[in-house]
């Protein structure tokens, strides 16, 4: 990517526009380090000089890199999307706002997770420390999915308790597996663990070994 261009134009404004177009980045990322007003030649004909600007793209922060990365992809997909940013303790949340974004969520959020994973890689490229963490969400999909997983965990735990047979869930990513484990960690009838290798690692729910665990023991474990 070119990081510095010099452009000319009839007016300073035209030259600036040409420079922005050439650099292909948002104007907020460009600094005009040199601006030369056009000069009129003799009788407006001879020896006139056009306006000239020198534009430099400043180094993007990791978050800006991710924003540009997503912006470029959405543009290529001809999707009109606004990115709303919010800080959370888990990282920076990019909430995508636009119409018909189901296509970016995909089956069980697979596309959303892929987009999020690639955005994090793009943001942190070349960094070894001070890495940023970006969470991409669409219409609160993430919290809705968490609720769904928690309800699923409860339902399946109940089934395991009734039938005594263990249940192997479909493959999930680490984040989703954690939600299932957390949802059932205080359940005194079933226990959970993960098995298999990524990306096919699955949560297994089974009856707690050693038969019944009484209520008091569970209370102790909660500390």
């Amino acid at each position: 990517m070119s990081l510095e261009v010099e452009m000319t134009g009839k007016t300073v404004d035209e030259a600036k526009q040409a420079a922005l177009k050439e650099l292909g980045v948002d104007s907020s990322l460009v600094e005009f380090v040199e601006v030369v007003e056009p000069t009129k030649g003799f009788l407006g004909l001879l020896g006139g000089k056009p306006a000239k600007v020198k534009a430099v793209v400043r180094e993007l922060s990791p978050i800006e890199k991710a924003e540009k990365f997503l912006g470029d992809i959405f543009k290529a997909m001809k999707l009109d999307i606004e990115i709303e940013k919010k800080e959370s303790e888990d990282g920076t949340i990019f909430n995508l706002i636009g119409d018909n974004l189901g296509i970016l969520i995909g089956k069980h959020g697979q596309t959303l997770d892929s987009l999020q994973y690639l955005s994090n890689l793009a943001a942190n490229r070349g960094l070894t420390d001070n890495k940023v963490r970006i969470i991409i969400d669409i219409e609160n999909y993430r919290s809705r999915r968490e609720d769904t997983l928690r309800r699923l965990a409860m339902r399946l735990a109940d089934k395991v308790r009734r039938t005594g047979e263990r249940i192997v869930l479909e493959p999930m990513n680490r984040h989703e597996r954690k939600i299932i484990h957390m949802a059932l960690q205080d359940n005194y009838r079933v226990s959970t663990y993960s098995s298999g290798d990524e990306p096919y690692r699955k949560v297994v729910i089974e009856l707690k070994r050693g038969g019944r665990r009484d209520y008091h023991e569970r209370k102790d474990r909660e500390e």
Binding site: I73, M77, I103, G106, T111, D113, S114, L115, Y117, L118
Partner: peptide, 19 residues
């Protein structure tokens, strides 16, 4: 690792293609 990036890349490109 284990083709994770390639998989994510394909997933996004395929989503765009569905459109």
């Amino acid at each position: 690792k284990q083709g994770r990036i390639a998989k994510a890349l394909r997933t996004v490109v395929k989503a765009a293609a569905t459109r």
